[in-house]
Design a protein around this nucleic acid. Structure first.
Lengths: 235, 235
DNA sequence: CGATTTGTTGACTCTAATCAAGCGTAGTGG
DNA sequence: CCACTACGCTTGATTAGAGTCAACAAATCG
């Protein structure tokens, strides 16, 4: 379904120092990125993935851990009835694909053309065996993912408006908190993340615009005009 | 709101060997229970908690890790609008309350009168520092919780019938797979776990009974009469 | 045993899904 | 340059499913 189109022309990026990207998600996530990807000997091959290119599929061998350098990634599951649930979005600096077991439990795709660094899971695991601090960082990463998953579950029992507002605030926070949010993902992606339909997402955004709470500058550029009101609606 | 009523009259249980209880949840969970609670020097004070007694509250210091010996436990959050989301149910053998950080991120209550063993978090953490295998077990426990949380999130985007069926099948599996499930929790608990109202849970159960898929032997005893059909509805 | 909690059922409402049409923008080719 | 197409997004009309409000039945507890 999705054309995989990684090029090998960008591998030279691997020689660049892999510093944490500014404005890139949770603080802990950043620290962990530094721990796992900071040292040259652990950092692996960077690749460019086209829009909608699959990075790995559910059930495949989890031989690598990934870090977003530029672009954005979604992880998801396809339900038996064909619907898709998106579990999380990863922005620059975000690490994904870390598994305790041998297989990926989710699929991952690039949302837009993205540069992704990989590091061999076996290297990470053996490093953790030698170094208790690295082992603790792995635990910490999984604990962060757990926190994210629980927050996500909390979202899914709220009203459509609450879900959309929570999504906007989360994105704003992760995009270094500017009042204007530039979304890399489509309405369908947002809907599949929030457990709604695209129509409901679209209608909710328009309604928020009518109440001067947000402004739809472009379909993927949303200005948060009334933060107090948004925080209230997020409740 | 909930009366805490732990008695100190049952502390003598602590001298009993703390073997894993049969028919008690996931296999990995059992192995971990053995790892953390198997050795006498780590096992702490067993306590009896009354029905609805709080074991710990969200935000409290996470000084202990807990294991259910008998009874059942729910972990939950109270939303700002007063609603309650139940994150998980723990049955005998189940371990809960393990945190990476210093505070509990959820609240925990006994569903029925339950015996719970506690072990000091500091002991677990220092053991993990010395022993890489224990460190790995901690990571593994959190990874299991992550899997549970993601499955829970998947549930919350399905129809009411699918949620109730999935709940029944999950409970049946965890109760050693007998065709008759004896639920320790109320309809309100089930509703708060599935993101539904008690009326919808009740109606869905009666509807499943009308189609001879289940039988409501008593309000908390449900016989699964047509497993193939249930599996189908679970899809 | 009465009292209180827990569970079921009914009538009605409301939110979000579905079905369907149309708009706007970007890319393509004459 | 302007059709022409394709895709993502919005908007409208209607429907379906779960929530709400209310009454009552059943089970449990003191």
């Amino acid at each position: 379904m999705h054309a995989q189109s990684t090029t090998s022309s960008e591998r030279n990026i691997s020689l660049r120092p892999l510093l944490p990207v500014p404005g890139a998600g949770l603080r802990t996530e950043r620290a962990l990125a530094h721990m796992l990807f900071g040292s040259v000997e652990l950092a692996g091959i960077p690749l460019a993935y086209d829009r909608s290119a699959e990075i790995y599929g559910e059930g495949e061998a989890a031989d690598y851990v990934y870090k977003v350098i530029t672009g954005a990634v979604r992880t998801y599951k396809i339900l038996n009835d064909g619907r898709r649930q998106i579990n999380a979005f990863y922005l620059p600096g975000g690490i994904f694909g870390l598994e305790l077991g041998p297989e990926h439990t989710l699929s991952a795709e690039a949302i837009v053309r993205s540069n992704i660094v990989m590091v061999k899971r076996s290297l990470v695991l053996s490093a953790a065996k030698r170094d208790g601090e690295i082992a603790r960082q792995l635990w910490s990463m999984t604990a962060s993912e757990l926190e994210v998953a629980r927050k996500h579950a909390l979202l899914l029992v709220k009203s459509a408006q609450e879900r959309v507002v929570a999504f906007l605030l989360e994105m704003s926070r992760r995009m270094a908190g500017t009042s204007s949010v530039e979304l890399p993902m489509s309405r369908q992606d947002i809907a599949d993340y929030l457990g709604l339909t695209i129509e409901t997402v679209s209608r909710t955004l328009t309604q928020l615009e009518h109440t001067h709470t947000i402004e739809l500058v472009a379909s993927r550029v949303i200005a948060l005009r009334n933060m107090p009101r948004l925080s209230l609606l997020n409740s």
